[in-house]
């Protein structure tokens, strides 16, 4: 329906180095990856393998030390509303209502004030928060706050949607609800989505492809051939889950061996 605006994302031999005092940490090295327009791509892997770093480079929060990151063919220079981010913590403006938080993302979209509010109201309705529009973030539960964050990101009509472990802090029940919501929204508006998670099950529930990160690069990519909605008890689902788990464990093991 709105795939016209979706863009592909390309990492070409990307390296990123962080300095902590005297220590140098290679968050990414020689990392290449192509994410197709309109696909739901999950980055999976243990902590410290560069998942969030990769996401921050697309968002423009950080710059690569080597290589290039391009969105729709043009290199990323700075953050911007064409690449919406759903943060790990909801990161809403606490002084604003839910509605104003969603409308805040449209400040630079060339819309009038009433157009911004109309679109924000419609977007809140789509994530099921019509009744919460006037409430401030601290008056909402964690799951509701994160849904406002999703509404804010989608209202911006981004060409890429970046989600950084957005449901890690939610309890299992609420987490299932928002996962279902994210799939429904993505099916209706298939925007290119990069989703960082350390849950194999979550990655397999949501994505069309899963990339496994290991020591600063994407080591394996799996197609997820199942239709939606997906069943976590399904045999094929669990076969794939087992295979990916084995691959991640092998990666962790070889990394330990290497650092020994």
């Amino acid at each position: 329906m709105t795939t016209g605006t979706s863009q592909d994302v390309t990492f070409d031999a990307v390296g990123k180095l962080f300095r902590q005092g005297m220590r140098e940490i290679h968050a990414l090295r020689g990392c290449s990856l192509h994410i197709r327009p309109g696909e739901f791509f999950s980055l999976l892997g243990p902590s410290g393998t560069g998942k969030t770093t990769l996401l921050n480079l697309v968002a423009g929060f950080d710059r690569p030390d080597q290589g290039t990151v391009t969105v729709g063919g043009s290199p990323v220079r700075r953050p911007g509303p064409d690449r919406a981010v759903v943060f790990q913590a909801p990161t809403l403006y606490p002084w604003m209502s839910a509605l104003d938080n969603v409308a805040a993302g449209l400040k630079h979209a060339g819309l009038s004030r009433s157009e911004r509010r109309d679109r924000a109201r419609a977007q809140l309705a789509e994530v099921g928060l019509t009744d919460a529009a006037a409430r401030r973030p601290y008056q909402l539960s964690g799951g509701m706050q994160q849904r406002v964050g999703i509404a804010r990101a989608l209202a911006m009509r981004p060409s890429v949607l970046l989600m950084d472990e957005p449901f890690a802090a939610l309890d299992a029940y609420v987490r299932q609800e928002v996962q279902r919501l994210v799939v429904a929204l993505w099916q209706r508006h298939p925007v290119t989505t990069i989703f960082v998670t350390h849950s194999i099950e979550e990655a397999l529930l949501l994505s069309t492809r899963v990339g496994i990160m290991s020591s600063g690069r994407v080591s394996d990519i799996y197609d997820v051939p199942f239709g939606y909605p997906r069943d976590v008890t399904d045999a094929e689902f669990n076969d794939l889950r087992r295979e990916i788990m084995g691959r991640i464990e092998a990666g962790v093991h070889s990394e330990r061996e290497a650092s020994r």
């Binding site: 709105t2 016209g4 605006t5 630079h108 979209a109 679109r119 009509r157 209706r188």
Partner: peptide, 25 residues
Amino acid sequence: TDLSSPGGRTDPASVMLAGSGPLPD
């Protein structure tokens, strides 16, 4: 960073929500 210009990406036809139906669930 400096002010970045978001550009006029908003195409009314592409409005994701145009007449959005019932909630997902």
